[in-house]
Every structure is written in C-alpha cells, then in structure tokens.
C-alpha cells in the first residue's frame, strides 16, 4: 500500500514515512475487524454446522451445505423475501411522490416562517426511536380506541381491525414506515432542488408558467442522483427493518408482516436453530453487499 502514497514535498522526516497513514488507520480498522469481520467469519462457519443450542448434547457437527439447501428450499424464507420486496415496492413510490411534493413546497419562495417550521419538523420522524414508532403504531391502529379508525369514521368508513387482519397489519406497517421515512426523501430532494443554479431557474420561470415543464426540464436532472440514493438506501433499510415491525406485529398475524429480518430473528432466537439462521444471514449479507456495490458504483464516482 506504499508506492502510490503521496510523498512529502520537503522534509521526509518525522512522521512522514510511507507507513504513517497506517498508524492513524490501525485502531479503527483493527477494532472493526475484531467486532465486524471476525463475527462474520464465525457466522460463516456456523452456517455449515448443525447448531441448535437447545440441544447441546448432539454437538455441533459440520454438515456441509445442508443448511443452505434447507434455506433455499424453504418456502417460508422465499415468501418472506418476497414480502420484503412487496413492502419495498409499496412504500417507495409513496415516499418518493410525497417526498417530492414536500420538497417542492419547501423550495417554493415565500412563507418564510411557516416554511422554516415545516423544514425543522421533518427531522422529528427521522429521529424517533424505531421501537417507539412501533409503540405509537400499536396505539394509533388499535381496533377499539385507535385514532386511525376515528379518522376512517370521519371519512364515512367503518372501523378496520388493523393489527389482527393480514391486509390491515401490512397497511399499518406501510403507513408507519411512510410517516418515518418520507421526510428522508423530502430532505434529499430538497437538497437536489437547491443545487439548481438560481439564474437558470429564474429564466425558466419567465419562459414558462407550467410547473410541470419546469420540473421536467430544469429540476429533474438535479433530482436524479438523489432518487438513485433513495432507491438504494431504502432497499437496504427495508432489508434491515426490524424494530418497528417487531414491536407492532411480531411478523403477524400469521406471516402477514414477516419481513426477512424478523424471520431470521425468529429462526435464530425463538427456535434457536442458529445453523440455519446463520445460513440465512449470510445470504442476506450477500444481497446487501451487492446493493452496497451498486451504491458505490452509482454515487461515489469521485472516490473510485
């Protein structure tokens, strides 16, 4: 790692050696190695063993690819991946559209004070502890005294048994996720909109009175990198999603909200089949690495 290192221009003494960056990097890298890579390797080894800690007498024998075969032929694993994908394609368009509307409202000139207030409140959902979002969801979507059913009543609809019907539970976690993460999309789009050079936007506003034309021809190019970031980061987040759903539904009723992280957690820590759970986790890790590669490829050109 030495020859590409920038040589010190004048005095190559005292702390300008080729190994200097190593001294600065070593503490962080070694720590992350110990707490990140080492457990990952341990998980990889575990994934090739029969490893049920409720039955320690059987030992933990190596079984080759048995766990992987079991996982890949397990229809529950696939259906929970599919459900995770369904969740993603449900929340993403809603968050993108709502986020864009919010960003445009915040970008529009005028209304200084109200606009600052709205801009600041966007941070609140993002900071709310994910588990607490789940608690709030349990309260809002309660069948008997939840405010969601009261709102439905105002609109002339009958009450829904949100958390004990498959469709209702899925809708409820979608709504809570939309509440928490729409501000994230809005803030990213707002950053994109503010990159449009002022003169160009002014000129375009004089040329056309159509907001849609302005959006399509002037603002869109500045929004696209943000959109890419949103799509990739949200996909990783949905694969990670655990806290809010665990608190709200525990994956139920049945398997209606059994997203992938919830499912693996159950196999590992309810059934204590750690061999199978590790194989599932390794497969999830592989998916994540592909997503991260994509993210870097598309958004970190300057680092490459």
């Amino acid at each position: 790692m030495s020859e590409t290192m920038r040589a010190a221009p004048t005095k190559p003494n005292r702390g300008y050696g080729r190994w200097t960056p190593l001294w600065f990097l070593a503490p962080a890298v070694l720590t992350l190695f110990l707490i990140g890579i080492y457990p990952t390797i341990f998980a990889l080894v575990t994934s090739f063993r029969r490893y049920n800690i409720t039955r320690p007498r059987e030992g933990f024998p190596f079984v080759g690819f048995e766990n992987y075969v079991a996982v890949l032929t397990d229809s529950t694993f696939w259906s929970s991946l599919l459900l995770t994908a369904k969740f993603y394609v449900t929340v993403l368009p809603i968050q993108v559209v709502l986020g864009l509307i919010i960003a445009l409202l915040l970008h529009k000139p005028g209304m200084g004070l109200l606009k600052s207030l709205a801009r600041v409140t966007l941070v609140v959902p993002l900071a709310t502890t994910y588990a607490v979002v789940g608690l709030i969801g349990r309260l809002i979507f309660n069948r008997d005294f939840g405010v969601a059913n009261q709102f439905l009543g105002f609109a002339g609809f009958g009450p829904i048994d949100w958390l004990s019907t498959p469709g209702g539970a899925f809708a409820a976690i979608v709504i809570m996720d939309v509440w928490q993460w729409t501000p994230f999309c809005a803030l990213i789009f707002l950053a994109g909109l503010s990159m449009v050079p002022g003169e160009i936007e002014e000129a375009a506003r004089l040329e056309t009175s159509s907001k849609l034309a302005l959006l399509r021809h002037v603002q869109l190019p500045y929004l696209l990198p943000g959109l890419t970031a949103v799509m990739i980061l949200r996909s990783a987040d949905v694969l990670k999603l655990f806290d809010m759903v665990f608190v709200m539904t525990r994956g139920g009723p049945g398997s209606a909200t059994d997203l992938i992280s919830i499912y693996i957690q159950r196999v590992g820590f309810r059934i204590f089949d750690l061999g199978t759970a590790s194989a599932q986790a390794i497969l999830l890790l592989i998916i994540t690495i592909v997503i991260s590669r994509l993210y870097i490829r598309l958004l970190y050109r300057e680092v490459q």
């Binding site: 990670k240 999830l284 993210y295």
Partner: peptide, 29 residues
C-alpha cells in the same frame, strides 16, 4: 493521504451502514 486500498476501505465502511444487524447479532450472541 492517497494509498492503495482506500476505495476498498470506503466500501467496507459503507457496507457497515447497509448491513442488517441480524447478520451480526447471531454470531455475536
């Protein structure tokens, strides 16, 4: 500094942001 492996290091840091905690929770447990 510029050094070889810098972009790999970045990649590693970013992957940490993306990885589901369940992946590490099992072995760390």
């Amino acid at each position: 500094y510029d050094f070889r492996g810098k972009s790999d290091l970045w990649f590693w840091f970013i992957s940490n942001r993306m990885t589901s905690p369940i992946v590490l929770a099992l072995p760390v447990y």
